[in-house]
Computed example of a mutant assay.
Amino acid sequence: MMRRLFDEELADLDNSFTEMGMLVAQTIQKSVQSFVDHDREGARAILDNDHQINEREAAIEKKTFEMIALYQPVTTDLREIVTILKAVSVLERMGDQARNIANSTIRVKGTKHIANVEEKLGEMGTQVAKMVSAVMDYYVKNDALGAESIAEENQSLSKRAAQVRSDSVEGMKEDAELVDSAADYLVIAGYLKRIGDYTTDIAEWIVYKRTGKIIELNPGYNYFI
């Protein structure tokens, strides 16, 4: 009886966690699109809805603590709950980065823009949102090998960020009126790079859930863009 109750609650917890992950992926995509489209209204909508991510994190954390106290799970059951407990706080930090991007969109001062850099930022946003969706899919499938492949995606994201950085710096040198916009591009690329790093953090917890091993999937990539 206790086992059946535990399994049902764990399934509910799993669903809540994956739903939160998909919400975060959508929010990241929307925040970057708002920035690229100079859509302040879209950015404000992201800020208005930010509480939903925070509330989901708080509810999931509370549930994990209750389940540990009530059922005192061991081995694989405990690893699954610990993985959710750790990964849900990472998802919340991703949501914070999406909120930062939305704030940048509202604050943006530059009247001149660099179209090809904004296009690259849009591509980074799409890539990182897909990375978040993919890592949640690997979680659902309990796919440790798939989770490890996120590290390669993150290196590809790092290269895109480095290109944004060099193009933005070049733009500043060529035209002083681009300084405000280029500074924002650097900041947004930094936020996106950080979200990429967070996806590898979740991937590490998926490997832990599957194998019990703590691994490092992001060695040396945690520098600013």
Rank of each mutant, 00 (worst) to 15 (best):
E55F: 09
L23M: 15
M2K: 15
E66Q: 07
S168I: 04
E152T: 12
N222E: 13
A58C: 15
D201C: 10
W205T: 03
M1S: 14
I188K: 00
E57R: 04
T18A: 06
R3W: 12
D77I: 10
A161C: 08
A182Y: 08
Y198N: 10
K62S: 08
I81F: 05
I84L: 06
A45F: 13
Q52M: 15
Q72P: 00
L70M: 07
G196Y: 02
E66S: 09
E177N: 12
E92A: 11
V108I: 06
L10N: 00
D50T: 09
A134W: 00
K159R: 15
R210Q: 15
N142E: 10
K120W: 04
T75V: 14
Y223F: 07
M136L: 08
G146M: 09
G146P: 07
Q72H: 04
R194G: 07
F17D: 00
V108E: 09
Q155K: 08
K159V: 15
T126M: 13
E61W: 06
D7G: 09
E41H: 12
I150W: 02
D184H: 09
S158G: 02
H38L: 04
K120P: 05
M124S: 01
E204M: 05
M94K: 02
I214Y: 07
P73Y: 09
A176T: 06
E8H: 13
D201A: 10
N116H: 09
E204H: 07
N54A: 12
E204L: 04
S156T: 12
D96F: 12
Y191A: 11
N116V: 08
V187T: 13
T200C: 12
I68G: 12
W205Q: 02
G125T: 01
K130F: 06
R3L: 13
P73D: 12
Y185T: 02
Y223P: 03
A59K: 04
T18F: 03
I28L: 10
L5P: 11
G190M: 01
S133L: 04
V108P: 09
D197G: 01
V164G: 01
L217A: 11
L121C: 02
A102T: 00
V88H: 03
L85F: 14
K173T: 15
L5Y: 13
N222W: 13
K213G: 05
I53R: 04
R194S: 06
I101S: 02
D96K: 11
Y138Q: 02
A161K: 03
T200H: 11
